[in-house]
Structures are given as structure tokens and as C-alpha cells.
């Protein structure tokens, strides 16, 4: 039940690499770490989930929260490196239709 979150800021975007499990125990840490970046004006956040082995609905809630906050502040959220299992989670919940997922454009991994 561990998570490592690594945030790298460049001029164009804020890149967040997450490794481990995102569940009820680790979700608060993720929210606290990333949320402040969403409140800046027009911040572009790219989250790399390729090393995430598990995510439950609480984790999903964090991303919806980030997405809403970014939308409100004119920013963008991009999720990359989703495993098939994670991809399914975003598909079922309809979030894949409204979020930018696995598109990996410019400067992706």
C-alpha cells in the first residue's frame, strides 16, 4: 500500500509521475500533492500512470476532482500510460469521454 509521487515543472507543463497503488489510503496524499498545481491559472498537468498497479474508485475521485478544478481555472489535464485495467475503469465511468486519456502527444513518454 505505497505510493510515490514525483512532480516536475517545466515552462509548458507540470508532469506528475505516480508509482504504486492509488486507493483510500494513498488517495489523500495524491490529492494534497497535486491539487495546489490545479489552482494556478492555466496550468497543464500531465499525469503518467504507467507505474500504477492498482486504482480504486477513491483514486478515480481524485482525478475527477483535479479535472474539475483545472476546468474551473482554465487548465488542462492529460493522463498517460494507463494500463488496460485502468483504461477500463475510465471507460466504464464515462470519464474517458470527457478527459484526455492516453493520447500522448508532444513530449509524451
Amino acid at each position: 500500500m505505497n505510493i510515490t509521487i514525483d512532480v516536475k515543472e517545466t515552462e509548458l507543463q507540470t508532469k506528475v509521475r505516480i508509482a504504486g497503488e492509488i486507493d483510500a489510503y494513498t488517495a489523500p496524499k495524491l490529492r494534497e500533492t497535486v491539487f495546489p498545481y490545479t489552482e494556478r491559472e492555466t496550468s497543464n498537468i500531465v499525469v503518467d500512470l504507467s507505474e500504477v498497479s492498482y486504482m480504486d474508485s477513491t483514486g478515480l475521485g481524485v482525478f475527477v476532482g483535479l479535472f474539475k478544478s483545472l476546468n474551473a481555472n482554465g487548465g488542462t489535464l492529460q493522463l498517460i500510460g494507463l494500463s488496460e485495467r485502468l483504461r477500463r475503469l475510465f471507460d466504464i465511468t464515462g470519464l474517458a469521454d470527457i478527459m484526455n486519456i492516453n493520447s500522448e502527444v508532444e513530449g509524451g513518454v
Partner: peptide, 29 residues
């Protein structure tokens, strides 16, 4: 469905399970 885990449908004749697939956005987004 509003983002919920799809249920299953068990067909008695074919003894087979099918996903009750229904995609829809979570409530409150």
C-alpha cells in the same frame, strides 16, 4: 448506468454470462 461496474446476465439456455454493458458518466460530474 452512471459509471457503475457493469452487471452480469446469466443466460439459462446457453449457460453463459454476458456483461450488462452500459456506459455513462458518473453522477455529479
Amino acid at each position: 448506468s452512471a459509471g457503475h461496474e457493469p452487471g452480469f446476465f446469466y443466460d439459462h439456455k446457453t449457460k453463459d454470462f454476458k456483461e450488462l454493458y452500459a456506459k455513462g458518466l458518473l453522477l455529479g460530474v
